[in-house]
């Protein structure tokens, strides 16, 4: 079947999509967006986390057809692609600076989950961070550096926002229905 959807603001379409395939497969194998990772295909690891109509979901658990006509934002959509080379989002930069990336497999999902968290709670407590990132597993870092990265990102975004640079919280979120 054919699936048309909007990914990172761009209308895209794919043909010959198998009816039982996941949004994750569609993104990675048909639409050339391999940022979202496939590590379990059962909702356990969060590496495939994307926004679907403004809500974070595991792309491996959404049927491709269910995303037809919807707005999807992937980790690729967090970077500012208007600049050349594309500028990293402050959350991405914070993950690099804090050493929160080792093998990097969990990172795309954590970035999207953190983006969602900081859009809702610009100054989260450690407890809130842990709770919000509970669906994202990392086998390398032991999570401490990830927590550091989230704190660093929250601080920088808050400073940006109060400095009037116009990057409000974690940036705009498309739609917000669940």
């Amino acid at each position: 079947m054919r699936v048309e959807l909007t990914v990172n603001g761009e209308p895209l379409l794919a043909d010959d999509v198998w009816e039982g395939e996941s949004l994750l497969y569609l993104l990675r194998e048909r639409l050339g967006l391999p940022g979202s990772k496939n590590a379990c295909e059962q909702g356990e690891c969060g590496s495939c986390t994307v926004y679907l109509d403004g809500v974070t979901v595991c792309a491996c658990l959404v049927a491709a057809g269910q995303a037809a006509g919807r707005q999807v934002v992937t980790v690729e959509g967090l970077t500012d692609r208007m600049t050349e080379p594309a500028a990293l989002h402050p959350i991405q930069q914070a993950f690099l600076d804090a050493g929160a990336v080792q093998c990097g497999f969990c990172t795309p999902g954590l970035l999207v989950a953190t983006h969602d968290l900081l859009a809702r709670l610009p100054a989260p407590t450690d407890e809130q961070v842990r709770e919000s990132l509970a669906g994202n597993l990392c086998r390398c870092t032991g999570y401490e550096k990830i927590l550091d990265a989230v704190r660093l990102a929250a601080g920088r975004l808050a400073a940006d926002a109060s400095g009037g640079h116009g990057r409000n919280a974690a940036g705009p979120k498309p739609g917000d229905q669940r």
């Binding site: 909702g43 986390t49 979901v57 595991c58 658990l61 959404v62 989950a113 919000s132 994202n136």
Partner: peptide
Amino acid sequence: VGSPQIRNR
């Protein structure tokens, strides 16, 4: 239930 992603869906 599950995680935020699971609860959202």
